[in-house]
Design a binder for these strands. Sequence first.
DNA 1: GTCTATAAAATGATAGAC
DNA 2: GTCTATCATTTTATAGAC
Lengths: 184, 184
Amino acid sequence: MRESAVKDRILGTASRLFYDQGYHVTGINQIIEEADIARASLYNHFPSKTDLLLAYLDQTHKEWFMALDAYLFPLAEPRDKILALFDYRIQRQRRLKYKGCHFNKITAETCEDEQVFRRVKMHKERFRQYIRDLVAQTQHHSSLDDEMLTDALFLLLEGGIAVGAMFRSSDDAEKAKLIAEFFL
Amino acid sequence: MRESAVKDRILGTASRLFYDQGYHVTGINQIIEEADIARASLYNHFPSKTDLLLAYLDQTHKEWFMALDAYLFPLAEPRDKILALFDYRIQRQRRLKYKGCHFNKITAETCEDEQVFRRVKMHKERFRQYIRDLVAQTQHHSSLDDEMLTDALFLLLEGGIAVGAMFRSSDDAEKAKLIAEFFL
DNA sequence: GTCTATAAAATGATAGAC
DNA sequence: GTCTATCATTTTATAGAC
């Protein structure tokens, strides 16, 4: 067995359960059972449940932007890349059964933890910057300036995904994309 | 003591804790302690914790639209009412310390419960209809049709509040309002 | 590093007296 | 209707053998 196979399985199982069921409703017992590892192995790799949560957020953040880069890579035009942001998130939500944004979810569950808060903020600020960079490369004929256009796209995306979770549907994210096309 | 004083205190305390801390992290013990009532009194009025949750959602839904009606009542122009939707939610979030939409929060915590899901969907669909009615009364010079304008406003509002929770700020909801003014 | 056994506390819910 | 006492589980986390 590889050096980190156990650790990976713990984090993988915990990540899936934290997102699918929720963080607080997922117990250590269920994680060790589904990951098929011993109780003390979990505490060996992760000193507490909170450490496991932070590792989950860090890993999700990394994977999220890597997958986004890969998704946009084939596209040449900045405008196409911007519209593909919507497709990226829509496809992802379809795969995840419309449970919404990982970082929105954890914010709703653990409002007080500053370490969680810092990671959520960082993730979303980086996404906003991602959009800002694309907008700067685009020749749009919008009456909005670049910064407002960035915010509009960001808010339409976040709104579309959040509403999608409440309706278990991608309809609103699709509408968000149509609205975004009017700006671009 | 009034007939329903105890029941009201239970629901009031539970509502506050469910929103401020989260549903799953709030135990029955804390509710009975802070409401200063006996354990069995809670189970007398609410057969289970789930019943308490559903009562919380129903009450929040009712209060939310009543307060909204009261907030928009003094305004004459439909356009002003639409913009006041943003102010209403911004002021509310400021008071609630930017913990976000009640219905978004509970969706993030309990994705599987169909009774919860039904109430969330109903609340948001009614809000969208509320916007739709106002848009229909407005003479806007937008290139978007009424239905898309409705969706744009709805998504900007929901996005602004959701992002506001992740940043503990009303900045994005304020930006959402500015963007909305371009459409109207 | 991984394991089993267990601790200490908190969970949702019930019984029965008043 | 309200109360106290208590139940059976489940929670996160630790101890100590291998």
